[in-house]
Design a protein around this nucleic acid. Structure first.
Lengths: 338, 338
DNA sequence: CTGAAAGCGCTTACAG
DNA sequence: CTGAAAGCGCTTACAG
């Protein structure tokens, strides 16, 4: 199956291949009639430019890379990535940019993967997610001069452009809501401590508690897994002055907490309110259905793609309005029993 | 940031670029000493071949495409894809093959995406998942001569190689188990009827029921969503001779069924046994924890990558042993109340 | 408005 | 064992 080239179009149209190239790329130098004729032929024979040839001459790979550093066994449980990727890819594909996806175990492997990708000229830029507080990937990306977008907010240690959702506002709104219900002992089961957003959320949580004049709240850091959520919940519910409300940094841990509470004979929501940090189907499949912080993850991916294109095309990346996070109230939260 | 080329290596080593190419590709025509010298330099300056250049001269894209035709809103709920992709990508990446991922809404769009990818020479082959009973993608792939692997079993209407798990054995084992517990009225909430595997599983289900001499069982087809699972469960539980056990084609619908049963005051597992068709975290986050058909999805992806490489490299693809599905018994199944 | 030519970074017969 | 040369399919100054 021979795929057609511009040489074939040129032959059919009876012009030079450069004329074809100009016509196809909408550049001046060809008459309107010729241009139309060429476009018609290209369309008719189903011609599309070879990315390899375009890359080689134009020094653009027409692809963007995403290296996900996340252990495979927790990946399937992360509804975030699938939706984020769907949004990212959809927007890239509108511009005929491919998405090259890679999974690795840690940042060392992520750096290797990025180096390789970049050296092989497979991508024009990289999307970095799940940034750590101090992230070994950043100096490498900056040193290699790889165009990149950080998903997770601007940082003092890097000038790379970023997109983010306002975690502070989200956490604050959840605390406000719980306090309005009458809660005063609110705890937090946080995510992976190395992650920047985990720390941002913890900070926002503590600040909100202070604002409301609550006692210094308990915070337990985890690795986002169900097991860690179970352990943290057991610990919190075993305290003499156990919290009347717990906020979790994702949905899996919050769902696991419902089971722990049941085992320990703590009624949800009467004796314990539970807030999930991510919204997914899981939240309305468990009982009671979970109150959760919800955001439009797909739009987040779309947004990231746009900024990535700005960077690649040399436009000053305009950080577009972040998708706001909102609290979806369901059955797992209520006023505390007195 | 100038990325090094073989010309630079040649200059440093004081040989021709063809010598460098031969050395780097492990082909004869260079002395061992020269070869080692060249490899050392390449390694030292962090050289990697430009895929674009290699593609253009070698007519290989060094990438494989996966076009997922699945509405975005149900995607996040599908733990299958994330794990499958992780397995697929991991194995491809071991061979320096990239994975180009695309999401589309339907088969029309999938065909467009594949045509484009192929015409642009972005990929060396395509992975097709979620095959329909009659699937409009197949004739296109065959006509274009795209190397492809079908995920979902060999078919009469195509000679394309395939990988698959034995759905018949899986469904049969689940029916056997339920019958052994004493169930005789077993129903099935099936998936999307257009899908080949939905029909295979329904066929296996009916056959197993017949083997055990059960009455002709109820089967309800759905679109895999929670809502459809809820509706189907309500219908089944409203019947006078309602089933004592229901098998669901995925985990989301099975989880939703637990809530329906509770609303309708049907005790699980005493009055109703529930079996989920996929295993995921969801199964042990809900209560009672769901008995489920589990398989190693990541291995399935690895397996698919291997067959894909066989196809691309012109080896006769050897369909390796399928990953067996096993029934994981949890708390949602028990002997029926008499 | 149009064509001939060089070049992107490799691979690969083909001579020496 | 090694080098000079053509070619993969485009883009893009540069002449006409």
């Amino acid at each position: 199956m021979k795929r057609p080239t511009i040489a074939e179009i040129a032959a059919r149209a009876g012009v030079s291949i450069s004329a074809v190239s100009y016509a196809l790329n909408g550049r001046p130098g060809v008459s309107d009639a010729t241009r139309r004729h060429i476009l018609a032929i290209a369309d008719q024979i189903g011609w599309r430019p070879s990315v390899a040839a375009r890359s080689l001459s134009g020094s653009r790979a027409h692809s963007v890379g995403l290296v996900i550093a996340w252990p495979a066994d927790t990946l399937g449980a992360e509804p975030f990535f699938m939706r984020f990727i769907a949004g990212l890819e959809g927007e890239l594909s509108r511009r005929s940019i491919g998405l090259l996806l890679q999974f690795v175990d840690d940042h060392r492997a992520a750096i290797d993967a990025m180096r390789r990708c970049w050296a092989e000229r497979r991508v024009d830029g990289m999307v970095l997610t799940d940034l750590w507080r101090t992230d070994s990937r950043l100096p490498v990306v900056e040193e290699l001069g790889i165009p990149a977008v950080l998903v997770g907010g601007p940082r003092a240690d890097s000038r790379l452009p970023s997109v983010w959702t306002d975690d502070t506002a989200a956490v604050t709104s959840a605390v406000d809501y719980l306090v309005a219900l009458g809660h005063r002992r609110i705890a937090r089961v946080a995510g992976l401590p190395a992650l920047e957003h985990t720390q941002v959320r913890i900070g926002a949580f503590r600040a909100a508690a202070r604002t409301h004049g609550l006692p210094e709240p308990q915070v337990i850091e985890t690795d986002f897994t169900r097991e860690a959520g179970v352990r943290a919940t057991r610990t919190l519910l075993s305290r003499r002055d156990r919290p009347t409300a717990i906020m979790y940094d994702n949905d899996v841990m919050a769902a696991a907490a419902l089971n722990v509470a049941q085992e320990m004979n703590v009624a949800v929501p009467d004796e314990l309110s539970v807030v999930a940090g991510d919204d997914s189907q899981l939240c309305f499949l468990v009982r009671p259905a979970l109150t959760a912080l919800a955001r439009d993850i797909q739009a987040y991916g779309v947004h990231t793609a746009r900024v990535m294109m700005d960077v690649i095309d040399g436009r000053s990346p305009q950080s577009q309005p972040d998708t706001p996070t909102r609290l979806v109230v369901r059955a797992s939260t209520a006023a505390p029993a007195t």
